[in-house]
Write a protein that binds this DNA or RNA. Structure first.
Lengths: 208, 208
DNA sequence: GTCTAGAACGAACACTCGTTCGGTTTTGTA
DNA sequence: TACAAAACCGAACGAGTGTTCGTTCTAGAC
C-alpha cells in the first residue's frame, strides 16, 4: 500500500493542510515537539486523533513539513534578490525580508530553530541542505558588502563568523520581539542593519 | 515526609550532583527536555532509574537545578564587573565573560535557552528573576557605553533593542560555534565586541 | 440510484513515561 | 566493631504515548 502524500508536493487537501500546520506549529512552538502530543494537536485543530493522520503519515512527518515549507520560502525569496543592486542594498533587503518573514511566522520559526534531531535521516538531510543553501546565499551577500565597504581583506572564516553574528541578531528575536512592544518589523530590521554595518553607538536612520 | 534537597542550597551529595547534572545536561541538550527520558538519563549517569531520584525530586527539579545554577553563575559574575572602569572596558569584559562561560558550559546553555515552560510556576518565577537581573546588568553596561561613545541621546527602548541584539550575537553561537572550527572563545568575543561597537566592515583588532 | 474517493471518527494496541515502594549495600565516623 | 546516614537498586504502578484498524459520512460523477 503506497501512500502518495509523502511530501509537500502532495496534491490533496492542501487547504486543510495549511490550516492544520499553522495550528500545530502554534502549539508546538509553546510546548516543544516532544512536549506536544498528537492528542493535543487533535484538540487545537478541532479534529479527531485518527483524523489527523489523513494529512500526514506521522508526527515526525508533521515536523518535517513545517521545516521544509519554512526554509523553502526563505531560500526562494533570498534567490530573488537581484545581484545587479549594490551590495548594501542587497544586504538591506536580505535583512528586511528575513525579519518580515520571521514576524509573520513566529511559531514556525521557533520550531525551525529547535533543530531536526527528531526527524529521520533522509528528511533531516533535505532540511539541512535547504538551511545551508539559505545561509550561503546570505553569506555571499555579507561577503560582497564587507569587501565593498572596506579596503581590508577578509578571510572566508571571518566572513562566516560575521554572518553567524548577523543570524544571531535576526533569529534571537524569537525570544523577545513583539510588534506591540518593540515596534514594526521594519524598524527592527533597520536597527539590525545599522548595528551590523556601523555598530551600536550610531543612531538609527529612519526607514525611508 | 519532608525532603530537604529542594534547592541548590542542598548540602548533601554535591559532588555526585555536579557530575550527574553535567551528564544529564549533555543528553538533554541533544534530545531536548521532553525528548529525554529518565531511563536515558539513568544510562548516561551510570545509575539505576530509581537511584537518580536520590539527587532530585523529579525530572522537573532537574531542569530547574540546571537553570538555577547557570543563571546564578552568570549573574554573580556580572555583578563583579567593576563600575570604576571605563564603560568600554566594562562592556568588553561582560562580553568576554559571557562567551567564555558559554563555551565552557555549552550543554547547560542550550538547555537554559529552551525556556522554562516545563517548570512549575514558583520555580519558573525564580529563574525568570535571575534571567532578568542578569539582562539588566548587561543592559546598564550597554547603556553607559552607548551614551559615552556618542553625542546622540538614546531612548530606553532603543538601548533595550540594542542589548537584545547583543544577546542574539552571543547566544546564537550555541548553534554553530566549536573551538576547533572557529577559533578560541577570546577571538570570538573580540569579533562580537567589534561588530557590536563598530559594525562588520571594520577589521577585527587582535586580542591584547 | 450507484459508485467512488476523500475526510473524519471511536476504539483499541503495544509500548514508554515519570514516579514510588520496599529493600539492600556502601560509607563515614565514633 | 557498631550503627546511622547516604547511596543505590529491581520491580511495579497508572497514566499517557504514537499509531492502526475498520467503519461511517459526505459530495460529486456517471
Amino acid at each position: 500500500m503506497l501512500k502518495v502524500k509523502r511530501s509537500s508536493v502532495s496534491l490533496k487537501g492542501q487547504n486543510g493542510l495549511d490550516d492544520i500546520l499553522e495550528k500545530c506549529a502554534a502549539l508546538m512552538a509553546k510546548k516543544g515537539y516532544h512536549g506536544t502530543s498528537m492528542r493535543d494537536l487533535a484538540v487545537v485543530t478541532e479534529r479527531s486523533l485518527s483524523g489527523l493522520y489523513h494529512y500526514f503519515n506521522s508526527k515526525e512527518d508533521l515536523l518535517f513539513l513545517i521545516n521544509e515549507r519554512g526554509f523553502s520560502s526563505l531560500l526562494e525569496n533570498a534567490q530573488t534578490i537581484s545581484k545587479s543592486w549594490s551590495s548594501k542594498e542587497q544586504l538591506k533587503k536580505a535583512i528586511f525580508d528575513h525579519i518580515e518573514f520571521f514576524s509573520r511566522h513566529m511559531n514556525e520559526m521557533k520550531i525551525m530553530m529547535f533543530g531536526t534531531q527528531s526527524i529521520d535521516k533522509k528528511q533531516s538531510k533535505l532540511i539541512n541542505k535547504l538551511k545551508d543553501d539559505y545561509a550561503n546565499e546570505i553569506k555571499s551577500i555579507v561577503s560582497s558588502y564587507m569587501h565593498d565597504s572596506s579596503n581590508d581583506v577578509f578571510s572566508d572564516a571571518e566572513v562566516s563568523r560575521r554572518t553567524y553574528l548577523l543570524f544571531g541578531m535576526m533569529n534571537w528575536i524569537y525570544g523577545w520581539y513583539s510588534k506591540s512592544e518593540h515596534g514594526s518589523s521594519e524598524a527592527l530590521a533597520q536597527d539590525i542593519f545599522n548595528t551590523f554595518t556601523q555598530g551600536c553607538s550610531i543612531k538609527s536612520e529612519q526607514t525611508e
